[in-house]
Design a protein around this nucleic acid. Structure first.
Lengths: 328, 328
DNA sequence: CTGAAAGCGCTTACAG
DNA sequence: CTGAAAGCGCTTACAG
């Protein structure tokens, strides 16, 4: 058994209430406080957080539910969330849904059982419809994907505009037959597709698109088929880092040089993207800001449950590199 | 207030003990069990895990302490740990130390306060010396780095052998002036250096090495200085994914083609490594196996606290690609 | 400032 | 199989 507040109280010759106050922020005389601290040091006492949470009804815990921590976007966002959470004296429980609504539902139930202060959620598409903000018993801040209608706090990229930046860039470089490869499970993929389509139509062009499961393998397969077909595009946009990885592999598989073969552009400015060929053109997302902002919004929501829901929309930044350069 | 077991009991017309048994694995008649389940469904009851933990003295929680989740090695290991943990009905608390012993100590203290079942730990170098297994009150499984002496469960790569594989490969490709770039904060870096040095000496060669902070930026700076100096190596080994990234950037910065300029080889077979030039030669670590094995060892340790400490040493696999090809 | 007491929501011997 | 009761380790009104 580990030592409890009772042991400390006995050792210090005070009541458990005094120990509790001495360790918290209660009013305690300097003498007693010193005694308590000496006793704590002597017996190596550590407060039991489960007991504290039960009694205080404060879990000081936030849930972070993403599709897959191995997606570098979520890796970076998670790290920012964790830093902000620990700085605010809160702990983080991380869960991966793999875009599976059943897993999402299970983890949301777990969050209820943990009595979390709140949840930061990258919702699965079908899952998002199943709950209403407020029905869960804790506030939710959505990241990466906002519920289309719901009045729920959210931090997202301006996906439509970001796709527009990529299209404009490719058009400027002289490309016309531009194809898009989008994730088929998240609303992020849908929005990036919508932005792609709008920008292409505005230029009076067709907007050929294909939708795939969000993995590099699936993307490679789909891109390989597309690029070797009669309708192969001159330039290809991939809607996230994993799909871009797959698209590059497919282009390579066809012996295409980068630059020189099919032009490529995508999302997520990971460290390695500048090393492929003469670099990959990407939209950089402010990943650290997204995580920090989501945590900040959650804290504000806890502070003021009544305030109006707000959606923070951050702009992506075009990082133009060799993979989309004009062909001579 | 959320509903408690008392509300369910009242609604079902049974005692709280019966509700508890019906939800757990206690002996309850089918009729009462059905009544309880109906009541639970009706009022949307969710058990309070803090209360359950406090009473049962079982936290069903494991701590996972790594240096930085953004290091892709830890990303992959974490995901495997989490999958295994949730499958075993346990939750994971993830912490990043940034190789800072003070942060490590803080998080270990937190783990004590959480009364975790156990911790999976990638220890900081100086931190590792500060605690003895058993002194923390919970079992520890070390990953990536084992305490040199300590009788503590661990899952590690055979770092010396892995470095040996890289050296042997480079020698075979005809390189002789081979330099090594190693992390200066972790024992992993030290071990990989030791393996590098041993293999080089065995071949009758010098083993020039440089040590840097574990970031791509630091590695790039150090590699750039080295490669532009009089003692520039013909081939460079980088002791982890981040350092390899930095080394590639440095090589590029000098206008070196890959392959063609300085030969490169490193650790961690990330998806993008095959896309840089004609691919980067790396040691692939069995990342998923490391995480799964660590969690399995922790569960076994909880099952049998007395069993002898064991260290599982996994072999790395050489993935030879264009970056280390013989120059003609 | 300090202590005795109640109670957070559970589980688990202890009786029946 | 079922229930009444004790108690896990805390915090927090309530008195003094």
């Amino acid at each position: 058994m580990s030592t409890s507040i009772k042991d400390v109280a006995a050792l210090a010759g005070v009541s458990v209430a005094t120990v509790s106050r001495a360790l918290g922020n209660g009013p305690v005389s300097p003498e007693l406080k010193a005694k308590v601290e000496a006793a704590v040091a002597q017996c190596g006492y550590r407060p039991n957080l489960s007991a504290r949470r039960l009694r205080s009804q404060l879990s000081q815990t936030v849930g972070l539910i993403v599709s897959d921590i191995r997606n570098p976007f979520f890796t970076a966002v998670s790290r920012a969330v964790e830093d902000a959470a620990y700085a605010a004296g809160m702990r983080v429980i991380l869960c991966n849904t793999d875009e599976d609504p059943a897993k999402e539902a299970m983890y949301l139930r777990l969050m209820q059982e943990e009595r979390v202060s709140g949840v930061i959620l990258a919702a699965t598409r079908s899952g998002a419809a199943d709950w209403r903000p407020g029905a869960l018993g804790f506030p939710v801040v959505m990241i990466d994907r906002a519920a289309p209608d719901a009045a729920c706090d959210a931090v997202v990229l301006d996906n439509r505009a970001a796709s527009g930046l990529l299209v404009a860039h490719l058009l400027e470089q002289g490309y016309r037959r531009i194809g898009g490869l989008f994730g088929n499970t998240s609303s992020t993929g849908s929005e990036r597709h919508a932005g792609f389509e709008a920008a292409m139509r505005q230029a009076g062009l067709d907007a050929p698109a294909r939708f795939v499961a969000p993995s590099a393998e699936e993307a490679e397969r789909a891109a390989a088929a597309w690029l070797s077909g009669a309708d192969a595009p001159e330039a290809l946009i991939a809607s996230n880092g994993l799909l871009l990885l797959g698209a590059v592999k497919a282009a390579r598989g066809q012996g295409a040089a980068i630059p020189g073969g099919v032009a490529l552009a995508g999302f997520d400015n990971e460290g390695w993207t500048e090393l492929v060929g003469e670099g990959l053109t990407v939209i950089e997302q402010p990943v650290a800001a997204i995580g920090a902002e989501a945590m900040a919004m959650l804290l504000q929501r806890l502070q003021d449950p009544q305030r109006a829901a707000r959606k923070v929309v951050l702009a992506g930044r075009l990082v133009a590199r060799g993979s989309s350069r004009r062909r001579v």
